[in-house]
């Protein structure tokens, strides 16, 4: 076997390994997202009800905020993004 043949084989195996890993990850993440249906949820009542990315929303149900104060929320909300 020439050096070029061995080198070609070695880099091909490395390419397949890395691309296979990436492709498997992409498909697994898509399947998980598919089950969860929603990718990202945020709520003002509680941050704990927001599922991690790619996971189904948790069963936690935030209580209705009776004494809602918009000013308090705006202080904590970065309106400039």
């Amino acid at each position: 076997m020439t050096f070029k043949k061995v080198f070609s084989l070695a880099i091909f195996i490395a390419f397949v390994g890395l691309c296979g890993f990436e492709l498997t990850n992409q498909i697994r993440e898509s399947a998980e997202r598919d089950l969860a249906s929603v990718r990202y949820v945020r709520g003002i009542a509680s941050e704990t009800d927001a599922p991690a990315q790619g996971q189904a929303p948790s069963g936690a149900t935030p209580k209705k905020n009776q004494d809602f104060n918009l000013d308090d929320i705006l202080k904590e909300t970065d309106l400039d993004g």
């Binding site: 249906s37 990718r39 990202y40 949820v41 945020r42 709520g43 003002i44 905020n65 918009l70």
Partner: peptide, 10 residues
């Protein structure tokens, strides 16, 4: 008031 926001699909 907007109390929840979700990225539904992308």
């Amino acid at each position: 008031i907007i109390e929840r926001i979700a990225l539904v699909d992308t």
